[in-house]
Amino acid sequence: MDSGGLIMHVNDGADAPYWNGLAEGRLLLPRCGGCGRWMWPAMNRCGACGSEDVEWIQREMRATIFSWTRTWHRFGYTESLDLPFVSIVATVADCGIRLLGRLDDPDQVDPVIGEGIAGRIGATRVGTRDIPTIIWSRG
């Protein structure tokens, strides 16, 4: 199944530096150059102070689990993922931005909100594309 046409693609939005960063092996996240606020989703203007100066700052791939779900149903576009799989919202350390990602789930132990996790850069195949993503593990 090709998801083309329906959705926004990598590298044509305000978050292009994020995707380019992952491709280069780095986690880059946007911070307002005017007021220092972390901004996510990425934007071209800070709604809080009005600055259009966006800085992309490297962060370590360390986070805590904000919330999670374990998917058992075969939804379209998830064909490349073995069922069940765990998706999480991860709060990135030293900035507070939350990222969607996948969590290794070898023993099907339920994630705990607040649990510390570490990430590595991988990819998810969707249709004919490999979308870079952070795959998180506990400990």
Binding site: S3, I7, M8, H9, V10, D15, W19, S67, W68, T69, T71, H73, F75, G76, Y77, T78, L81, F85, S87, I88, V89, L99, L100, G101, R102, A123, T124, V126, I131, P132, T133
Partner: peptide, 17 residues
């Protein structure tokens, strides 16, 4: 792409989280 890469593709999953 953030959602697709996380395997989040359906309303049920967003609401489940």
């Amino acid at each position: 792409d953030h959602m697709l890469a996380a395997g989040i593709v359906a309303p049920a999953q967003v609401c489940a989280i």
